[in-house]
Amino acid sequence: FSITQFVRNLGLEHLMDIFEREQITLRVLVEMGHKELKEIGINAYGHREKLIKGVERLI
């Protein structure tokens, strides 16, 4: 299971460039909250919320 699959499953594949540029893996994403996601350029609250909720389902 990769970050690419995870992001695609959430319908947020347009954010993949950010994850690749910042070298974010699923392991790193698990540790990130709204503040960190915003810092790397994910400005939409809804997108950040989707990512965080998606990660919570993985754990």
Rank of each mutant, 00 (worst) to 15 (best):
T4I: 12
L51M: 05
R48W: 06
I18W: 03
E31W: 10
F19A: 00
E31F: 10
R27G: 14
S2Q: 10
K35C: 07
F6E: 00
M16I: 12
R27S: 15
L51W: 03
H47S: 12
I24L: 07
L15N: 00
E39W: 07
R48H: 03
E36K: 07
D17Q: 13
L26A: 03
E39S: 11
V28L: 12
L10D: 00
H14N: 10
E49H: 08
S2K: 07
L29I: 06
V7M: 11
G33L: 04
H14V: 13
E22T: 08
L51G: 00
K50D: 05
I24E: 02
N9I: 14
I40D: 00
Y45V: 13
T25N: 09
R27V: 09
V28T: 13
Q5W: 08
R27F: 10
L51Y: 00
V30P: 04
R21P: 04
N43E: 13
I24P: 02
S2C: 14
F19G: 00
G41W: 05
H14F: 15
R27N: 12
I24S: 01
A44S: 14
L58R: 03
R27I: 11
E56D: 08
L10Q: 04
S2P: 11
E20K: 11
L12W: 01
L10A: 03
K38C: 09
V55W: 06
Y45S: 09
L37I: 02
E39T: 08
M16P: 01
R8Y: 13
K50R: 13
L12M: 08
D17L: 10
K38R: 10
T4K: 14
R27H: 13
T4Q: 14
I52C: 04
I18E: 01
I42R: 02
I18A: 04
L29T: 02
E22I: 06
Q5I: 10
E13T: 10
E31K: 15
L29V: 04
E49R: 10
I40C: 04
L12F: 04
M16V: 15
K38D: 06
M32P: 01
N43P: 09
F6G: 01
R8W: 09
R21F: 05
E56C: 11
F1A: 10
H14S: 11
R8T: 15
F1N: 11
A44K: 13
E13A: 12
G11N: 08
D17K: 12
L29P: 00
I3M: 12
G33F: 04
R57M: 13
E36A: 09
I18K: 04
L58P: 01
E22H: 15
G41T: 03
R27D: 15
M16G: 07
E31P: 08
E20P: 03
K53V: 07
R48L: 10
G54S: 08
E56H: 13
H47I: 15
I3N: 00
I40K: 05
D17C: 10
S2M: 09
L58V: 06
R8K: 15
K38L: 14
I3T: 05
M32L: 08
S2L: 09
V7Q: 00
F1K: 10
E13F: 11
L29W: 04
K35L: 06
K50S: 09
E36W: 06
E36F: 06
L29D: 01
G11H: 09
T4F: 13
Q23P: 04
Y45P: 12
S2N: 13
K50H: 06
I42H: 03
G41F: 05
V30D: 01
T25G: 06
L51I: 15
I59E: 07
N9S: 14
V7Y: 02
E20F: 09
I42P: 03
